[in-house]
Nucleic acid binder design. Structure first.
Lengths: 223, 223
DNA sequence: AGGTTTTATGTGACTTAATCACTGAATTTA
DNA sequence: TAAATTCAGTGATTAAGTCACATAAAACCT
């Protein structure tokens, strides 16, 4: 059961849910939960429930046998996580992990309730469908990047995007380790590539911090 | 307008469409078309229509700036192509190509009609939803393979799967070029890796043909 | 405050994969 | 049967990933 104050918040983030009835909102199985950073969203929750983000964000990722990670995408507030769908399929081989990145508040919708809403509310259905289409295209694009672009290009692209997300500041607080997890490569590869960019005076490095010195040069490296 | 003989064929391939009414089937905008191998499914068709395969198959792929290709997935008979969804989004940056691999017969459903069916038929909706969830997981898994596995492992996996698809024969008719497009790498890389496998007496090579000599060794290479 | 631990980064040596620029061999086609 | 096309092999070079460390800054004691 969720609190009424949450409903208005959910409605402003998810306008596609405007049609839901009182009974839909106040059924026992719905819940809003808070999770702290680094917490792993358990597979059971992840698969038997649909997660809709009200605040903070989740990061979905894959881990290799050797422990290397790659980020697939993030679920931000106002978005939902499409991988729940795998519960429908039951294919355990294709596993995807998720963890909380910034403290997250989320609406947890049991699969059956979700199914019911999908059946009854066209606008909601359309929203969900568009969301998963977007993820599908995003993954195809990520695949393309991994397979065809140089790490220098991918690092440059990430740095530009990261800067944009942080008020276009030239000072980025991020470690080489996080960058490697982001791009799915080894930390040493990131360190070395960044060093080359520093020698070219495109960026400046210090512990936990990257300063962009020549943004246009960085943009040109994207390819 | 489609022929009545096609309807029964479609129904047996797509049982989720059993609920469709006569008017749904016999509206003007529906069509069944035949396409020959190598034909590229035009972007306009690809985006404004939903393609449902009745026979043959499509291959979806990405092309790099340098011309290298990678196969994303195949759409076989009884399946539909979920990328049409991008029409909803209108993001042109994420482009995916598709071409006919084996002579294909397909039902072409205009986006509006598709939308209407999605609204009116829960079972059809469920089918489509499951399909795109499946593709999403498949892409995530492909991404994982590309990023974390060796080409030897990926080639081995492909050869085993290819054999299974061809009545478990040990004689595979495929060129190094097609293998490279399949796995998204360079032809030379495939040739060299196959040579190594030949020296290990796991396979035997000749023009346009690969013979599996030690299948269990091949399986062990998959990782 | 000084020492210990943890986290972040640097680097050399080596392996794997991709790119470039070819070669020759097998097969089709004119 | 000669020419064109397709398929495969190979050396040299560059890019990326792996392994095994070293060094340095920051955090954590008590």
């Amino acid at each position: 059961m969720i609190q009424s104050e949450h409903v208005s918040r959910i409605l402003s983030l998810f306008p596609s849910m405007a049609d839901l009835s009182e009974e839909d909102w106040y059924q026992d199985s719905l819940q809003v939960i808070q999770m702290e950073p680094q917490n792993i969203v358990e597979k059971t929750q992840f698969l038997k429930f649909v997660v809709m983000l009200l605040d903070g964000n989740l990061r979905t990722y894959k881990v290799s046998a050797s422990g290397r990670e790659i980020t697939l995408y993030r679920v931000n507030s106002g978005e939902c996580c499409p991988f729940m769908s795998s519960s429908i399929l039951g294919s355990s081989e294709y596993e995807v992990n998720a963890c909380v990145e910034t403290a997250a508040l989320m609406l947890i919708v049991p699969a059956e309730v979700f199914q019911d809403w999908m059946d009854r509310y066209p606008v909601f259905r359309q929203f969900i469908y568009t969301e998963s289409a977007r993820r599908l295209l995003h993954l195809a694009s990520l695949l393309d990047n991994i397979n065809f672009k140089t790490i220098r290009g991918r690092i440059s692209e990430f740095l530009i995007q990261f800067a944009e997300q942080n008020g276009n500041s030239d000072t980025l607080y991020i470690t080489h380790q996080s960058l490697s997890i982001e791009l799915g490569t080894a930390r040493e590869v990131i360190s070395r590539t960044l060093k080359v960019l520093e020698h070219k005076e495109v960026i400046e490095l210090s512990r936990g911090k990257i300063t962009i010195r020549d943004r246009s040069a960085l943009v040109r490296f994207i390819e």
